[in-house]
Every structure is written in C-alpha cells, then in structure tokens.
Design a protein around this nucleic acid. Structure first.
Lengths: 252, 252
DNA sequence: GTAGAGGTTGACGTTACGTCAAGGTCAAGC
DNA sequence: GCTTGACCTTGACGTAACGTCAACCTCTAC
C-alpha cells in the first residue's frame, strides 16, 4: 500500500493542501519522500490521518490533536477539557441569541434601543477618573468588575432603568417643578436607589451611597458637562443637583 | 466635547488600538485629525462607537455592522439573518458536544473507537474511482453528497453498523460456515440492507441495489485488496463474494 | 515532442484586533 | 534649554487552518 498525496486525500476525504499543511506543522509526515520530492503515504499514515480527522470533527485544535495522538492515554482528559470549552461556548451563544432576539423585538417595537444603549459603558467608564480620584482606585475596580460581570441583557436592563430615570429628570426639570417638592424628591429617591445597585460606590451596598458621595455626585453633574449632558444640559443638571441636595439634607 | 483617542476609548470601554483599526477599515473615522496627526473624536463619534460596540456584542462582524449603521432600517433584517447563523452554530455545538461525550464514554469503556472510526470516509471514498468508472460520475456525486450531509453522529452510527457487519463476516468466514447456508445468507441479507441505505448506488433507494451492482461489488471485494482488507483479506473476501453471489441468484 | 494530470515550494487572504518596534509631540520639572 | 514620561503616529508580525493562485518541475501517454 503506497499512496500519492491525492490518493490518500481522497481515501480520507480531505485535500492534498491539508496534508501538506499537516506535514508543514509536523502533525503528519509522509511515510517517505521520493527523490523527486513527491510525498508518499502508507497504511499507518492513513490510520493516523483518520484519527486526526476524527478529532478535528470533534472540534479540537491541531496542537491539541497532536498532543492526544502522542499520548493516547490522555485522550479522555483532553476531551473533557475540550467539552468544558464547548459548553461555555454554547452558553455564550445562548445568551447572544437571547440578546439578538430582544434587540429585534425592541427595534420592531419602535424603541430607540440603540440610543438607550448609549449608556453601555458610558456612564460607567465616565465615572472612572472621578471615582478613582475621589474614592480610590479600589472602588473603581470593584465597580468595574461588577459591570463586566453582567450579561448583555442585564446591562441593558440596568441601562433601561437609568435611561428612564434620566428622561424623568429632564421632563421634571423642563416642567419647572420645585426641586424640593414631592415630585422631585421622589426622583431623588429613585436616583438614590439606583445608585444603591452599584457596588464600588462608597456605601454602594444595601445601605446605599454615603451622604458625601451623593452630594459629590450632585455637584459633579453641574461641574462637568459630560455628566450634565445626561440630564439635559446645565439647567437640568442644576435641577438634579438641587433636588439631590434637598434629599440628602432631609434623609442622609 | 473633544476627546483624544485614549479618552474616548475609556469612555466606551475599548482600546485605542481598536479605534485605529476602525479608522483603518473605514468603520469609524475621527471627527478631525490635528496637524500633528492626532485623532480627535466628538459626541457623534461616541454615539456611533457605542452602536458599533453594541452590535459587536451581539456577535455581528464588522462589515455587517457597517452595513447596519449605513441603513439602520435594515437592522432587523440583518439581525434576523445573524440569528439564523447563531442558531445553526448552536446546533452544531450541540452535536459536537454529544459526539465528544460519546467518544469519552467509548474510550473509557475500553472500546477502540479510534480504530472503528477508521471507516470514516474510508470505505466511502474508497469506492470513488470504482463507482465512477462503473456507474458514472453522477452516481458517485449523489453518494458523496449523501455522506457529507450526515452529522458526525450519524456517520458514526453508520460506520458502527458497517464495522459490525464486517466483523460478523470475518467471524463466519473463519468458522468455515457454508457460504450458501442460512447463516451466511442472513449476513448477505444484512449486507444488502446496508447497501440499500446508500443513495447513489444503482438502485440505492428503498428497492435496494441492483443485481449487477451487488454482484459487481462481490467481485470487487476479491479483486481489490483494499476492499478485501475489510473482510479479513483474500480468503474472507472470497467467502463474502460466494455468499453474496448465492444470495443474488436466489433473490435478485 | 508535447499535452495534460499531478507534484513541489512559496506567499497572500481570511477575523479583529494584540503586541511590539521605532520614532514624533507635548506638558512639566530642572 | 534639556530631560523625562505620557501619549501619539505608522508599520508590521501573529493568530487557526487551511483555500487559492502563481511559477515551475515530473511523469505518462500519444
């Protein structure tokens, strides 16, 4: 049994290019190389090739395949590791499918999800420098880890609440309501609760943000146009600050 | 609002390298480029970048993202196409996971699945030249398409039956039973049924292989050592041929 | 001798950047 | 004015597993 490269490729159901590649990377050398440079394969080559192709169909990478073939007793171990990776991939796909379905629904419902999505990472990383300077690198790191641990769906949910809160702030501000009145104070309460959901903020746990952090944020909204933009500009930011300040004086 | 490349990267939660890449491929150009070559981005850049990153999280490729951003009304259409691809990927992974689990079980059960797997594509493509020469290129193409359309699990199942049939032929041959006797004829019947499952073989449908094809195969097993090897060598192949010939004379 | 089929070694393309490498720019401190 | 350090630039290689030319050699058959 002595086959040319094309012959063994057909026998195994692959291509000659693949065989040259396997030769190049040292995964499967020909049984012999004739004086004219032609590669020739034998039955042992075929067996090894069949095993390579089997493992490849299971999704293993070529380096992993080489390892398994070198130490066949470790095949179950390698396959179990591979299995874990496959399962993780499947879960990732499951989440992605859910996200895409959700996005399609939202877009067809006429929601401007894309704009809403703008808060993805925005407000979060927007805080980075300020948070680090005022509350320490550690606080930011915790907050960052929290954010990154969320799935796309969870992020969108969180962003949706924030986006709604922001829109309500702007609406109230434009209607000229009293920052210290009931309506604005209810918004301030929502703002407080919303912040409570962010670990990494001082007092970001169940007890909620600290008085200093809450007041500091309020001032930041006015001082920094990037923050203020989320509340309808300088005027909106001033309104939010006044309402938050009043809330803090009464409750914190 | 005017941000450097690093600043906007942090704002959006990505890297400056990514932004340069998006600039290179024309997906996101900076708002302006200063005389010193520095890239500068504005709020519009940020909006577009956020949308890019959102779509990227959904698993879309950069060309697809560019298309969606150019024609936002086609986003649902593009996403639905993407969704299909995601589902196909998930099914592929599901099958792969099952295959890996099966393989692990087999290996731990001490089965030499790797050897059994040798029939993957082997016997199939082994037929190629003969089939094409005797029954036409078209027949082989149909057979080939059938084979390639099978999942790894289905292939393994088919191979398993073939492997078992082969082993039974060899065992019967070595026990010296009568090729025209009941036992051998039962094997010939199984062989006939097994061939019936292969489209592309003349009469490969429900009616089963034709008399000529069946007899031709029987002779081939003897004439070609590559075929005969599956039935225990020349002696085994002769036994198989005799049994098949007897079967054909009685039933076909 | 000349097709024609098949063999060889490069080398680029694919996806979305990460990661140096070499060098220019800018603000701050001496 | 010079150095330092942070930040910017372009260029180019590496990634996984081959597909796909390109240019050129080899063998068989007519």
């Amino acid at each position: 049994m002595d086959w040319s490269i094309q012959e063994i490729a057909k026998l195994a159901g692959t291509t000659s290019r693949t065989l040259r590649h396997y030769d190049d990377i040292g995964l499967l050398a020909p049984a012999r190389i004739a004086s004219n440079g032609y590669r020739h394969y034998d039955a042992d080559s075929l067996v090894r090739l069949q095993r390579i192709l089997l493992l490849r169909e299971l999704g293993l990478g070529l380096p992993a395949i080489a390892e398994v073939l070198d130490r066949e007793d470790r095949a179950p171990h390698a396959l179990r590791g591979h299995l874990e990776w496959l399962r993780r991939e499947q879960h990732r796909l499951t989440r992605q499918i859910a996200s895409v379905e959700h996005t399609i629904d939202a877009l067809e419902g006429g929601e401007r999800l894309m704009a809403e999505q703008m808060f993805d990472g925005f407000d979060h990383t927007e805080y980075k420098e300020e948070v680090e300077q005022r509350w320490g690198v550690d606080a930011y790191a915790r907050s960052d880890a929290w954010w990154r641990s969320m799935s796309a769906d969870e992020k969108r949910d969180w962003q949706g609440r924030m986006s709604q809160l922001s829109a309500d702030w702007i609406a109230a501000s434009e209607r000229g309501v009293d920052p210290a009145g009931n309506e604005a104070q209810a918004l301030a309460q929502r703002h407080f609760d919303w912040l409570r959901g962010i670990p990494g903020t001082p007092g970001g746990g169940a007890e909620g943000p600290s008085r200093e952090y809450f007041l500091g944020l309020a001032e930041m909204y006015v001082a920094d146009e990037r923050f203020g933009a989320n509340y309808g500009g300088v005027d909106g930011a001033r309104f939010v600050r006044d309402a938050m300040t009043a809330y803090a004086e009464r409750n914190l």
